[in-house]
Amino acid sequence: MRAELFTRPLRRELVATWGFVARNLHLTKRYWGWELVWFAYSLTSSLAVAYIGLGTERLAGAAVDGRALTLYLLVGTLVWAYLSQIFYVISEMVAWERWEGTIEYTFMAPSLRLTHLVGTSLFAVIYGIARTLLILAAASAFFDIPLVGANLPAAGLWLAVGSVSFVGFGILAGVMPLLFPERGVQMTNVLAALLLLVSGVYYPVEVLPAWMQVLARMSPATYVIQGMRGAILEGVGLDQLARPLLYLALGGVGMILFGTWAFSQAERYAKRTGRLKRSG
């Protein structure tokens, strides 16, 4: 068995990747009570935001198309539910292991750190898709969601490319809990809140002050949400999407490479200063 350890490096890394996915799936199953709580919280938040659309029509009168506004808000809230889930799962992987007390065990394993990050990211995407589809299914019981005219393949492509961007963002944010055992998670939460504010999740970014629009342009969520709205609400086709999608994909890959490099540097710093230890 030990000989096998040295002979098939790629296969070994694939097994380790699955190890991270399987571990997180098992943990999700065991924490089912909390999963239920977070699902209920996400669903009610999404519904509450979507009802603002119908409420605005009632308050403002016929000048507002309540159904269109509801769909606009629903797309924003669902895409954000998905992207933020990816961000949280990846950025909090160090904090989670530190809390469980397993961080030293995982960091002492012979698998590559890249494998660790890929495994966690893979789970984050699977988990994010499953959770968002469940919220969408539940929300469709409350609202008529007309998808006639929507360009679903284009929407799928936006989401796929957006996932890459947020994986990179999550890895980069995951550096903070490595550097700051206590305040790191607080920082990632502030970052997520900032992304929510500036990325046009519930409103066009043009309504933001000029300096916030600069931040909006730096957030990959802005482009993903705009792209998804274009594809679902206006049926914008792939021919018009090639360039922005390419930019987003390149940015995402760049973010992953930079995030992975930053993570390895932070790991080295943590090992030099003794910050891997769970007590910090």
Partner: peptide
């Protein structure tokens, strides 16, 4: 390495923790 603090995922079973450990070393469960 075996340390004083049993470094486990507390909600996972011993078997699940062991299989996770084996996979980290590239050995299928």
């Amino acid at each position: 390495r075996v340390s004083t603090e049993a470094a486990f995922f507390k909600k996972l079973s011993p078997l699940e923790n062991l299989l996770y450990g084996a996979r980290l070393y590239g050995v299928p469960g």
